[in-house]
Design a protein around this nucleic acid. Sequence first.
RNA 1: GGGUCUGUAGCUCAGCUGGUUAGAGCGCACCCCUGAUAAGGGUGAGGUCGGCCGUUCAAAUCGGCCCAGACCCA
Length: 937
Amino acid sequence: MTDYKATLNLPHTDFPMKAGLSKREPERLEQWRQLDLYRRIREAAAGRPKFVLHDGPPYANGSIHIGHSINKVLKDVIVKARGFEGFDAPYVPGWDCHGLPIEHKVEQKVGKAGHKVDARTFREECRAYAAEQVEGQKKDFIRLGVFGDWDNPYLTMNYDTEANIVRALGQIVDKGLLTKGFKPVHWCLDCASALAEAEVEYQDKKSPAIDVAFAAVDPADFTARTGVEAGAPALVIWTTTPWTLPANQAVAVHPEEDYVLLGGDQDGQPRELVVAEALADDAAERYGLENVRRSAAFKGQVLESLSLRHPFLDRRVPVVLGEHVTTDAGTGCVHTAPGHGEDDFVVGKRYGLEVDSPVQDNGVFRDGLPVVGGLHVNKANGPVIEALQEGGTLVAKKSITHSYPHCWRHKTPIIFRATAQWFISMGGHGLLERAREEVKTVTWTPDWGQARMEGMLRDRPDWCISRQRTWGVPITLFVDKDSSEPHPDTPRLIEEVAKRVEQEGIEAWFQLDPAELLGEDAERYSKVTDVLDVWFDSGTTHFSVLEQRPELTVPADLYLEGSDQHRGWFQSSLLTSTAMRGAAPYKGVLTHGFTVDEQGRKMSKSLGNVIAPQEVWNELGADILRLWIASTDYRGEMTVSKNIFKQVADSYRRIRNTARFLLSNLNGFDPAANAVAPDDMLALDRWAVARAAQLQDELRELYNGYQFHQVYQRLHNFCANELGGFYLDIIKDRQYTSRGDSVARRSCQTALYHIAQALARWMAPILSFTAEEIHEHLPGDKADSVFLTTWYDGLFGLPADADMDLAFWERIQAVKQAVNKAIEEARNRKELRANLTADATLYVDDQVRALLERLGDELRFVTITSTAALEPLATAPAELEESAVAGLKVKVVPSPNPKCARCWHHRADVGVDPAHPEICGRCVTNVEGPGEERHYA
RNA sequence: GGGUCUGUAGCUCAGCUGGUUAGAGCGCACCCCUGAUAAGGGUGAGGUCGGCCGUUCAAAUCGGCCCAGACCCA
């Protein structure tokens, strides 16, 4: 038997089937580094329209987790896709470097500032620690394949950034938006500092729950207001923080709520207690009242300004009205201490109540106070309750477990405490109102982001930006020692300070002798030592980064972060930008969800369902991680598990092998010399290119709309359906058996070349490593990197007058499916094995005949059967069922003809040439004749 | 407890303004190939569209309630 295999053009490529990503990706990174690729891309894109995605700085602490990966990869996909779309899309990564978590880490190492080390040394340690963290995270971000200016990122602790944060504060002061206030803030007793809202978390806590009677000073006044006769009426409040009672200034009731006077005996003593009607039964039971009498109901508003006696202090407090009062629990009468609660503070302001804050920074009550003087708040509940008992004002006492704010670092309960703090006023110059207007100008993705942002801005309180901490950008103000007013020359002073900070960092402020700047005035002013909330640092990067770096612009085109940042960075950025320049710092905001496990639960160490990104790229490769991120709809929760990564790896292989097959069939193809002109290409090949062109349009639209999971779906389906299941299967015969340089084969290679070119770029934003590998294996002249190109412009559609248009080929695919089905049935009946052992007869009506006749003799190459004959539908054997294609029945029988040793088709003309007894006529001409002609497939 | 979301085959996703037997790819089962071979081709089985109640001639698509989950807030 002659070996005809040598006469075939079998596929060959060095592009490996096995990706070996975990090993190859680091090599690729090194190659990119040596190419100085990020800079090369910038050069190539110079002068093109800009697209600025501004990086929200991750906090410089800890190794990166899967959430970081999602965030950075989504950004990278967008930046790269914008590059292919023809934009100059720089990416300057950043880090958030000041703040509490770093202080905590450093405290564990060197002890608290001011105790074991001085503040200056402590800050140096913080700076060193943050720098180290930045390097660690940077290494991982680079490993993910994220392109950016990694040699020159922005750090909020860079001296110039610190200086510009100070300048940003200066602008806020200039606008008159900085105010000093005495307000209740979350106060951590262990931090001895105010906490940002983000630093507070809720946990269950056991607390005493007491009911306390506030007796009316004048029972006659009570009766006059309510029409209820009473000897010694008292309003009852319910509280879980007895220690705040010394600061009580009022009792709040709801104006529209119904209240009643409960009369009865408690342990033999008569009581006359005012509670909300809705809670009266509960209350009576809780108090163990006997012989209960209940008065007619009256509205809360009639009690307004009724004078009450403080339960254990010599103080008279009024009844006030508040919409915040609820009847969910308690009594409907609310203990009000403006120094210890937000609602209380607001009501207190309306009624001119005193903001009493008897607790000092260290959590200890001021000396000399009755009952609690000198006591720590954590030890004050007992004495307060005793005092109530003695005064007979304690009506009930039990213990409850409830959700209570805790410090996210110390995990200890925090308190509300009024302290002197610096605020950015939301009302100043209508800041909040203006910001709400700006929200409307922004494109939110998903669109509900707007509603969420608006909701959060609706009742936004003033922003407390001061922190009594060590590692942060200082609030660089000199305030009058008497009036606490900032120095009248503050704008100039702040710029002076900023210049020094630019040279020496924030230490310049802490070491500054006020006399240097103030001269003789230094006596009258003191330096503020508070530092800024870190949200101010990151919130002003639109100024300290976007406005400073020449390659960036304000507003940015896009901010992209997790959906928690509606309250975080998106908001701090919006507020400061609106305050400083009257406009939002971004044109668009995109948010992604958080990861959950297969049960839909969040990732946490305690649940043990955490997947480390490092593990993923070490085992499967960064491209698999990237593909997972792209394949998941980021708008909702993103489910992640080992199992899902396994599935993603499976689909990765499909895409990779499709590319590999394209490349292997480009063996011996030089596009410059061998490409066939579009008009000379075979119909099927032109169709394949046209489908690719169509797909490219879709993919571009999907990339532009940030719909990456759809990009993935379309890309994968194209590889599996149009290519694997149809085109590539069909062209194998022609590729392998026709003459090496025949039009039939070169036409196909031309199509494969165009598709491979396009495919590498389609996947490049997502599968960056693999795309570069494909690009590397492409024949012909090419750029040093796929990322130095834009979308492939070598694709072309079908001619407008094409006989075989897209609809035609769609019908052909349906016919092929019908044939497949008939073959499969025959195979199951054990009549057939391989497709090419089959002869197919297609019984067709006139319509289908008109369709299929256009392919002439080449129909059998499409059906991949040895013959494909057309017969009238009416002559079909009775037992044949109609196929899924109307007007078509398919009969498949084993071919009676001998198998050609070369092309494996079963043909009657095998041995037609005596010199080649084992092969068919077609193969003879392909082996030593002029070669067969193909027109369609 | 409040705000904003999510819930379609084992998995990842389509299903537009309500209208024939709810689709795709993967996975799975079975078959084929051995000239893409730790690949490739084919056929097939999988769905109470989270649940309940409504509106409607008609709902995965509209409304209400409930359940589960996420983020934010209290």
